[in-house]
Design a protein around this nucleic acid. Structure first.
Length: 124
DNA sequence: AGGTTGACTGGGG
DNA sequence: TCCCCAGCCAACC
């Protein structure tokens, strides 16, 4: 838990965290994105860990269960609860491989359709 | 201003 | 394929 104390410093909407949230909110149901992918889409290929941190501080409204590691592995069980993240994803139609990882070949978000009102200023 | 942290990643063994 | 290690980066303290 971390939202007990009112320590939310809503900074400028152009902050890295805000951009991450904006982008994560665009991940379609049934698809997933990797931490590194999010970071890269925002112009910081090396900020994957920071994206993870942003997820930790994310509000409940965000589909953070759709953000996974580059290997297709899910977040630690203690984050969403044992099996919770997998259930949510399967409920959205995401299939898993025998090794318990997501089939990124079929469910990795392409990043298309991010026609946000002024999202990112990257190469796309 | 500096040291620590982490829901990451890619490469090497 | 799994485990370990070094590099990365923004927020925290």
């Amino acid at each position: 838990m971390n939202h007990s104390s009112g320590r939310h410093k809503q900074k400028a909407e152009g902050d890295f965290f805000s951009r991450v949230y904006r982008l994560v909110a665009c991940i379609p149901s049934g698809q997933v994105a990797t931490y590194g992918q999010i970071a890269a889409m925002l112009g910081n290929p090396g900020a994957a860990r920071t994206v993870g941190w942003a997820m930790q501080a994310a509000s409940e409204g965000l589909p953070c269960h759709r953000v996974v590691s580059a290997s297709g592995a899910l977040s630690p069980p203690e984050v969403f609860g044992p099996g919770v993240q997998r259930e949510r994803l399967e409920h959205e139609g995401v299939s898993f491989l025998p090794n318990g990882r997501i089939d990124l070949k079929h469910h990795l978000w392409s990043g298309e359709g991010v026609n946000l009102e002024g999202e990112v200023s990257g190469p796309w």
